[in-house]
Design a protein around this nucleic acid. Structure first.
Lengths: 117, 117
DNA sequence: CGGTAATGATACGGGTCCGTAACGATCGGG
DNA sequence: CCCGATCGTTACGGACCCGTATCATTACCG
């Protein structure tokens, strides 16, 4: 069954979740970083810099820098692929999984509230 | 009726819309700018710098700068309040309304696709 | 081996945003 | 009328991010 949502509901949901993100101030992730983080945690591994760059339609340095900053936040980790040492495998972390889960809960909760149209 | 959505669906929706925003590259709005824009277009006018700052829990310069950049994109306009010339009233624009509508359509469309869980 | 291709990281110049602090303009009460 | 309070803006120093171009490392193939 399709997930039905009207435009006005979509906008209120989008606004409310963004308000939560801004107010908590914890994430500080740009749209690109958010897309990268969720791709890592939703799509099947392994993830590489090149693969992420292709999926997002951005250049490789964008991915490298995003991984740098998200790594500093403990949201992801990098490791050399021993079978092909040119590759770098991006790995998930507990902190990253928790952050993703928190985001999901926020969206779910705000969607529930919006039901009272 | 409440808007029911499961955490895994919420995450896929969040990711997919962010992917769209990144790939189109047209918006380039930060989380704060998005929250400001949607507040202006969803909440009842009049909107002031101070009011927006209070709602978002940020400082006034953040609002001023966001209005500068969004104004440059044609998404909002400012005008002096003639009854109290200290105030500045933030006004909507056609381009801004279209951008908000486009975002809503994107969310609605991606939500519909996610139904096939 | 040697040379080419591919991967991820880095250097650089430019732009944007942040928070604090200060500023000019305007209102309003004593 | 003047002085404090309020409003939005600007200045400043620092941090982050972007895209292009380049680099070092590693793999592969003749």
């Amino acid at each position: 069954m399709p997930l039905e949502i009207r435009p006005s509901q979509a906008l209120r949901l989008w606004r409310q979740v963004h308000l939560d993100l801004v107010r908590d101030g914890e994430s500080d992730l740009s749209a690109r970083q958010t897309a990268i983080l969720l791709t890592i945690y939703l799509e099947l591994p392994p993830h590489t810099v090149r693969g992420l760059a292709a999926q997002l339609g951005v250049t490789k340095p964008v991915i490298t820098r995003a991984l740098d900053s998200m790594g500093k936040l403990g949201l992801v980790t990098r490791r050399r692929d021993e079978t092909d040492r040119r590759n770098v495998v991006i790995q998930r972390t507990v902190a990253g999984a928790l952050a993703v889960e928190r985001l999901a809960d926020c969206v779910v909760e705000r969607a529930r509230e919006i039901g009272a149209t």
